[in-house]
Computed example of a mutant assay.
Amino acid sequence: MQCSPCLVVALSATLVALGMLILWLYGRTPTRYGKHAEEETGEKPPEQKPRRLHLPAKCAWFLQELPAFLVPVLLLALRSPPRFAPLGCRLLGGMFCGHYFHRTFIYSLLTRGRPFPLQTLLSGMLFCVYNGFLQGYYMVYCAEYPDDWCNDIRFTSGILLFLFGMGINIHSDFLLRQLRKPGELTYKIPQGGLFVYVSGANFLGEILEWFGYAIATWCLPAFAFALFTVCFVGPRAYHHHRYYLRKFTGYPRSRKALIPFIF
């Protein structure tokens, strides 16, 4: 397989367009899943729906996130000759695949979420295959960096931002899990960490992660993914915030949805 710059541009542009479409579709109306299926659409909670349309959260998250980890690894393994030395591959292995290794093999085992809609799962899997191929294909077959890239301010600042965002994301997920006892499905007010300032602390962490990745790699596919992440999780954070304000009379009014003190 050879690098095709035209393919990289086309796939990246499609990713941005998909993000804009999602922002337009769900900017005002939340996706019909979890708390929003029950609150906004009047549907029955997932646990009251036929199980054939839902999978347990642990299984669903594992299946959904696995392609984003597996596809880049396969691309790297299938490349002939192998390419382990260049910095581009080390970035891929240490950042993109590191995130999805955690989401696939750690987060999925720890989550206490509600049963997952099959349609949502299939959509998520298709996206992870697509994005995993785009990011992996570029890094394995196209990326070229100078020998001193590790000393570049873009690399160092991007790495720090990525690790900072990943720390926020993991810590926020931990705090959300502590709100529920095993088997409990009720929603409660998130407390601690950046939840003191925003309702979507976990989403903010993920956005910072991918912008850090984009800065460190300084490539079109990574920036396209970072923009897609904003378009995808930004509305989710906004609708979570509105839900909490409606459901809990004692919800802190000083909290913002996604950006502390601003939005």
Rank of each mutant, 00 (worst) to 15 (best):
residue 2 Q to G: 12
residue 150 C to V: 07
residue 253 R to V: 02
residue 231 C to E: 04
residue 73 V to R: 10
residue 64 Q to R: 02
residue 187 Y to M: 10
residue 228 F to I: 03
residue 153 I to C: 09
residue 66 L to Q: 08
residue 120 T to D: 11
residue 152 D to G: 05
residue 80 S to L: 02
residue 72 P to W: 05
residue 194 L to R: 02
residue 136 G to H: 07
residue 206 E to R: 03
residue 54 H to P: 07
residue 160 L to V: 13
residue 106 I to K: 09
residue 64 Q to W: 02
residue 10 A to G: 05
residue 84 F to E: 07
residue 178 Q to R: 15
residue 26 Y to Q: 08
residue 248 F to D: 13
residue 66 L to E: 13
residue 224 A to M: 04
residue 33 Y to F: 15
residue 15 L to S: 15
residue 166 M to I: 01
residue 15 L to V: 05
residue 241 H to T: 01
residue 7 L to S: 14
residue 60 A to I: 01
residue 207 I to M: 04
residue 74 L to E: 11
residue 227 L to R: 03
residue 88 G to H: 02
residue 225 F to N: 12
residue 19 G to E: 05
residue 159 I to G: 13
residue 249 T to E: 15
residue 139 M to R: 09
residue 73 V to Q: 12
residue 203 F to R: 07
residue 125 M to P: 02
residue 134 L to G: 10
residue 172 S to P: 04
residue 36 H to N: 10
residue 215 I to Q: 11
residue 58 K to T: 06
residue 66 L to D: 09
residue 123 S to T: 09
residue 102 H to S: 09
residue 192 G to R: 04
residue 42 G to N: 06
residue 29 T to E: 13
residue 30 P to G: 04
residue 77 A to S: 09
residue 19 G to N: 03
residue 176 L to G: 15
residue 112 R to P: 02
residue 178 Q to L: 07
residue 202 N to E: 06
residue 247 K to P: 01
residue 110 L to F: 09
residue 163 L to M: 14
residue 183 G to Y: 02
residue 151 N to E: 12
residue 256 K to N: 03
residue 83 R to Q: 13
residue 93 G to Q: 11
residue 259 I to V: 10
residue 37 A to Y: 08
residue 256 K to M: 02
residue 226 A to I: 00
residue 194 L to P: 05
residue 94 G to I: 01
residue 237 A to R: 00
residue 1 M to V: 04
residue 160 L to A: 15
residue 105 F to H: 12
residue 150 C to R: 12
residue 125 M to N: 05
residue 63 L to E: 10
residue 47 E to S: 15
residue 104 T to S: 14
residue 7 L to Q: 10
residue 134 L to S: 11
residue 146 P to T: 00
residue 143 A to S: 14
residue 14 T to G: 15
residue 157 S to Q: 09
residue 90 R to C: 07
residue 127 F to E: 08
residue 175 L to N: 12
residue 132 G to T: 01
residue 37 A to P: 06
residue 241 H to A: 00
residue 107 Y to V: 00
residue 204 L to Y: 00
residue 16 V to H: 03
residue 93 G to K: 09
residue 222 A to L: 03
residue 54 H to C: 04
residue 158 G to Y: 06
residue 77 A to C: 10
residue 253 R to E: 14
residue 144 E to N: 07
residue 247 K to I: 00
residue 261 F to V: 01
residue 103 R to Y: 06
residue 150 C to N: 10
residue 93 G to Y: 12
residue 204 L to C: 00
residue 207 I to Q: 02
residue 238 Y to S: 05
residue 150 C to W: 12
residue 78 L to Q: 14
residue 249 T to Y: 05
residue 59 C to W: 08
residue 213 Y to K: 08
residue 78 L to P: 04
residue 188 K to M: 07
